[in-house]
Design a protein around this nucleic acid. Sequence first.
DNA 1: TTAATTTATTACCATACATCAATTTTTTAT
DNA 2: ATAAAAAATTGATGTATGGTAATAAATTAA
Lengths: 192, 192
Amino acid sequence: MKSNSLKISEIFKNMSFSEKEIEIITSSLKKTTLKKGTILIKEGDFVDNMYYVESGCLRTFHIDVHGKEHTVQFGIKDWWITDYTAYFSSEKAIMNLEILQDCTLYALSKNNRELLYNKIPQIHKFIRIKLERAYAAFQKRILANLSQSATERYLEFINTYPDIEKNVKNYHLASYLGITTESLSRIRKKLN
Amino acid sequence: MKSNSLKISEIFKNMSFSEKEIEIITSSLKKTTLKKGTILIKEGDFVDNMYYVESGCLRTFHIDVHGKEHTVQFGIKDWWITDYTAYFSSEKAIMNLEILQDCTLYALSKNNRELLYNKIPQIHKFIRIKLERAYAAFQKRILANLSQSATERYLEFINTYPDIEKNVKNYHLASYLGITTESLSRIRKKLN
DNA sequence: TTAATTTATTACCATACATCAATTTTTTAT
DNA sequence: ATAAAAAATTGATGTATGGTAATAAATTAA
C-alpha cells in the first residue's frame, strides 16, 4: 500500500491528498502490465478507460479508407492516453491503441473518473489543466503540419520527444509525421 | 438585466443558475462589439481573455517564419475562441485573432474565470466538457490533415461548417486547409 | 458611378513527396 | 545458429500541390 501511494503522488503531481483520498484514488486506478504488440483498444470498441503510462511506449492510430495507418499520438512515461473522442463522447472508437514496448499502465474508467470528480473535487482542476495542455500541444501540431516541411517536422519531433524515436518503428513515426516510410528513410539519409 | 440573463442562459446551455449566480456570471462577462478587420489579439500580446461569440465571424491565425498565414481556428455563433495556448499558459500569443465579420463577443478574463470556478463550481465541469469536445475536434482535424487530399478536406469543411464558408475569404479557408488560394481555386473549378 | 484596391482565377512550370519494385538489413522464431 | 519474417533502404517514375505572373472579377472608396 505504501508503495502504491508513492505511485499516486507521481501520477497526480503537485497535489496533496489526505490518507483517505489516497485510498479512494488507489482503488480507482487499476494497474495492468501489457506485452509489446497488444492491441488494447480496437476500432469499433467502446472505450471505458483512459490510461496513465508508468513505463513503456504505446500509440493510438487510425486506419483510413485506403487502409493506411495514421499515428495520432504516442504515449510514454507520465502521459495519459486513450481514444479520447470515444472516451469522452461514449461513441465507438475510431482509433486503435497499440503497445509498442512492454507497458505498465494505470487504467481510470469513466465511472471511476466521475467518482473522483465528486469525491475529490480538486482532481477536476488537475484534469482540466492536463486537457488544456493537450489542447495546446494539438494546436502546435496542427500548425506544424500546416507550415513545415516533412524534414522540419521530423527534426522538431526528435528534438521534442527524443525518448520516443528509439522505441518506435520507422513507419510508426512516418505515419505520425504524415509521410511514407520511404520518405522518412530519404530524409534521414539526407541529414547524415 | 432581464435581457442579459437571457444571454447567459444561451452561453451556458443546459445549466441552471440561481438569481445570484446569474448576477455573478453577468458581471464576469464583458460584452464588446467589434468591426470587421479589427485585430483583437496580436502575436506577442499577453492574452487575458477568451471570447464567446454571440454573432459575427472571426479567426485565429499564425504567421510562420516565411511570412505565410495559417488559420488555426474559425469562430462563429456559440463558439469560444482565443489563443488558448497563450491564455492557458500565460505565455505571449503566437497567434493573431482577427474579426472577419462584425462581431458581438463576451469576454471572460482569466481572473473572472477563476472567480467563476470558485463561486460556481458547476462551471468547472461545463468548461471541461467544452475542452473535451475541442480536443476531439482537433484530433479529427489532425487525422483529416494526415489522411485526406485537399479536395476531400475542402468538401468535409464546407459540409461540416456551411455557415463559415460564406463569411470568409478564399485565402482564409485555403490557409485553414493547408493549401494555397490558387489550389483552392482549382479545386473549386474541378468540382463544378 | 467610376476609379482604386483587393481578391480570385488561370496558365505554365517547379518541387516535395508518393508509389512501385527490388534489395539489404534487422528482428524474431525455431 | 540458422532460417524465416519483418522492416528499412534505394532507385525509377508519377502526381498533387506550390510558385510565379498575368488577367479577370469583386469589393470598397470617392
